[in-house]
Amino acid sequence: MSVKSALLVGVGGQGAILTAKVLVNGLMQAGYDVKMSEVHGMSQRGGSVSTQVRWGEKVYSPLIGKGAADIVVAFEKMEAVRYADYLKPEGVAVINDYEIEGATVAAGLAEYPAGTLEAMEKHFACHVLNAEKIARELGSAKCMNIVLFGSMVKALKMDDIDWESVIADTVPEKFRELNLAAYKAGYEAVS
């Protein structure tokens, strides 16, 4: 297979890193070569964060540029449009219909953009879900990231890997049941 590239984007603290870890652990177990790139540094403080994961038989670059992602998973919907130009034209987007204003909007210096979902749907195949609501109904908004991961697995048709056992091995034991339920709910939430 050719190398696949995923871009996980969100706001610092949303758990994108743990999601990437689950993804990478599963891919490694399946025998893929994997490379992963996180954005560190100043962006941790309420900033926009992105993690790239690439896998295949042999991966050289840990980094992709614009127009090269097979999938963008946006943990926050404005982040989807921020990184939209990283998607291949035939790429898919999994978008959390969830809003985090951020400092610029909160300070009244700019308005949170309207029509982010419509703008994405106009150009790309999109799977939109309110992962925050789903996670809260399961017992904790914190498992929102694994809800999104379930949707990502469905969108990429990665059913050949036993993700439930990967999740069980990756997350702390006391959150295991919650995260397995989150994974299933996310998987079912998209078509």
């Binding site: 404005m78 449009v81 939209a84 130009d85 998607l87 953009p113 309207a114 029509g115 150009h123 790309f124």
Partner: peptide
């Protein structure tokens, strides 16, 4: 692809 909405 440039989408019509830009992020703050």
């Amino acid at each position: 692809t440039q989408v019509e909405v830009s992020a703050v």
